[in-house]
Amino acid sequence: MSGSAVSNNNRLSAHIPKHFMTVLVICIVLLGVCVLASLVLGSRPIRFHELIDGLFHPDVDSYGANVVRKRISRTVFSLCCGAALGVSGALMQAVTRNPIADPSILGVNTGASLFVVCGIAFLNISSANQYIWLALAGAAITAVFVYGIGSMGRGGATPIKLVLAGAATSAALASLVSAIMIPRSYVMDQFRFWQVGSVGSASWDAIATFSPFLIVGILGGFLTAPALNALALGDDAATGLGVRTGTLRLIAALAGVLLCGATTALAGPIGFVGLLSTHVMRLILGPDLRFVIPMSAISGAIILTVSDVCGRLIGSPGELEVGVVTAFLGAPILILLAMRSKVRSL
Rank of each mutant, 00 (worst) to 15 (best):
L12H: 11
A252D: 01
S185Q: 13
D205H: 09
G271L: 02
N8S: 04
G3L: 15
S277E: 02
A227M: 09
D236S: 15
I333K: 01
P269V: 08
V40G: 01
V343K: 06
V6T: 04
A262M: 12
M281Q: 06
G286V: 10
L214A: 08
N10D: 12
I52L: 14
Y147D: 01
L254N: 05
G153H: 11
V68N: 13
V216T: 10
L223D: 01
L276V: 15
P317A: 14
C118M: 12
L304V: 11
I302F: 01
S7F: 15
G268N: 10
N66W: 05
G197S: 05
T22C: 00
G197R: 08
L304H: 14
V35D: 09
I293E: 00
C80G: 00
V163M: 11
V325H: 09
L106D: 02
A5I: 08
E50M: 06
E319M: 03
D102Y: 12
H19I: 00
L136P: 00
L223H: 01
T305R: 08
A137M: 10
V187Q: 00
I333S: 02
S2C: 09
L136V: 07
I52F: 13
N229K: 00
L41D: 08
G286S: 03
P212R: 09
T22P: 02
E319W: 11
V196F: 10
Y186E: 04
F222E: 00
G300Y: 04
P103A: 05
A94L: 00
L55Q: 12
S113E: 07
S296Q: 01
F272G: 00
R11F: 08
C118H: 04
C260F: 08
G148D: 13
G220F: 00
V343E: 07
E50C: 06
A65K: 08
L346W: 15
V60D: 12
S126Q: 08
G246A: 07
A172G: 15
L329Q: 11
T22D: 03
I182L: 15
G221E: 02
V117W: 07
T326M: 06
F291H: 05
V33K: 12
A84H: 03
A101V: 13
P287R: 03
L162I: 07
G261F: 01
A135R: 01
S104Y: 06
A140P: 07
S2E: 10
V199S: 08
T239S: 14
A331E: 12
A65C: 04
S13Y: 14
V60G: 09
A237G: 05
P103K: 15
R184Y: 04
G155Q: 14
G82R: 02
A253M: 12
G54A: 03
S126I: 04
G86W: 01
S78R: 02
N10F: 13
R192N: 10
H19E: 09
R312A: 09
V29S: 06
F122W: 10
G318P: 04
I298A: 00
I251H: 03
R11A: 10
A171R: 06
R154E: 05
A157K: 14
D102V: 13
F291L: 05
H15Y: 08
G200V: 06
V216Q: 10
M188G: 00
G64A: 11
S211L: 13
P103F: 03
I314T: 14
D236K: 15
F272W: 11
V87W: 03
L24D: 00
A327F: 11
I160D: 07
N10A: 14
V6F: 04
